[in-house]
């Protein structure tokens, strides 16, 4: 048996309460080993960002109901509060946001912002914190880092800002980095640079990364393992290679088919017909069934169980019913650690 996972999410439910209730996450289970890079794949509204924000307890507490356990390094983060929560956020787990132009404070220099985080978590003086900031900017390969320390966010390009954001997130050496579509706001050439940088830094620091994206190409490029989300739950997960070669869930297959590579001019692109469910009611059957071309009567009656067609894989689809059920929907398989 491999050692205890770094992150362990069990049966997570997140509901947003207001005039109407939105069931954003419905019974999500997820494990992550140390040093593992997981891509969380799914379309808009499938609950990827909500999962990340739950991990950092960033959701507004008054309007959010959270059930289930989330353990990081053996600590149940739902019990954290006050200074321990502050130490956890940014110390054990930190986050890179989608739009670096908005996630950096416009009135402070990059150096000040990184130094502030370092001073908070490492209890060191300002001079030493600035040294760490300089070191971090060098590590994320920003040219002439001394000068960039004194730059304001609006004086830098998009790719540069995202590098600075990564430096900020990694300054206190977290064990887990959450990346919320960090390359969506960047152009294609910068995008691949940032992806490679993240992968390199991940090896350098030995941390784990959860990488949220809706771009399957990006997921393939960077991750060890892929989890596909749909309507607030993971419908399929497995190693990146397995998912690409042999996608089992009809939704994953649809996502893989709906890309632009090898498409002839004039031919209609493959798409998945229909649109995602509204999530105003808690799903009690397969959420994808209404759009699924292979749906069976039982798909509309009850939630499909998880099956494990091969080690390290799990698929929530009735088409797989020949295989043994995955234990409690968990990836307790040996093959996950890369």
């Amino acid at each position: 048996m491999s050692k205890a996972p770094l992150l362990q999410i069990e049966n997570l439910h997140v509901r947003f309460k207001s005039d109407r209730t939105v069931h954003a996450i419905n019974g999500l289970n997820l494990h992550l080993q140390e040093g593992e890079m997981l891509a969380l794949l799914g379309e808009s509204g499938s609950g990827k960002s909500v999962t990340l924000k739950t991990l950092l307890r960033l959701l507004p507490p008054k309007r959010t109901e959270i059930d289930g356990t989330v353990q990081v390094n053996g600590t149940d983060i739902m019990t954290l509060s006050g200074t321990r929560l502050s130490a956890y956020r940014g110390g054990d787990v930190s986050m890179v946001f989608q739009e670096p132009a908005l996630a950096l404070d416009p009135v402070y220099t990059i150096g000040d912002q990184i130094a502030e985080t370092v001073m908070r978590h490492k209890s060191v003086g300002r001079a030493e914190a600035r040294q760490v900031a300089l070191d971090m900017l060098t590590r994320v390969r920003i040219p002439s880092p001394e000068r960039r320390l004194k730059n304001y966010p609006h004086e830098m390009s998009g790719g540069m800002r995202q590098r600075a954001m990564i430096a900020l997130a990694l300054a206190s050496r977290p064990k887990l980095l959450l990346a919320d579509e960090p390359t969506t706001a960047l152009d294609a050439t910068v995008q691949i640079q940032i992806l490679l940088l993240l992968r390199e830094l991940q090896r350098e620091f030995g941390m784990s990364i959860i990488f949220v994206t809706h771009d399957i190409g990006v997921a393939v490029e960077i991750s060890d393992r892929v989890a596909v989300m749909y309507a607030g739950n993971i419908v399929e997960s497995g190693s990146t290679r397995d998912i690409i070669k042999d996608a089992r869930h009809p939704y994953t297959r649809g996502l893989l088919a709906a890309n632009l590579h090898g498409v002839d001019r004039g031919r209609r692109l493959d798409t998945i017909a229909g649109s995602p469910p509204s999530l105003e009611t808690k799903p009690d059957a397969c959420s994808f069934a209404p759009r699924c071309t292979e749906a069976r009567p039982q798909c509309l009656r009850a939630l499909p169980p998880f099956f494990a067609p091969s080690p390290g894989r799990q698929v929530a689809c009735n088409l797989e019913e020949g295989y043994s059920p995955a234990s409690h929907g968990l990836t307790a398989a040996p093959a996950i650690a890369c």
């Binding site: 950092l56 502050s86 739009e99 908005l102 996630a103 009135v107 206190s172």
Partner: peptide, 26 residues
Amino acid sequence: SLDYIDAARASGGNALTIVRVHVLGN
């Protein structure tokens, strides 16, 4: 409601620090 306030919370700032540094500064 801007992202950098969320980012400050995500990197461990408590309410007082966020108000003092990031809100007042802006």
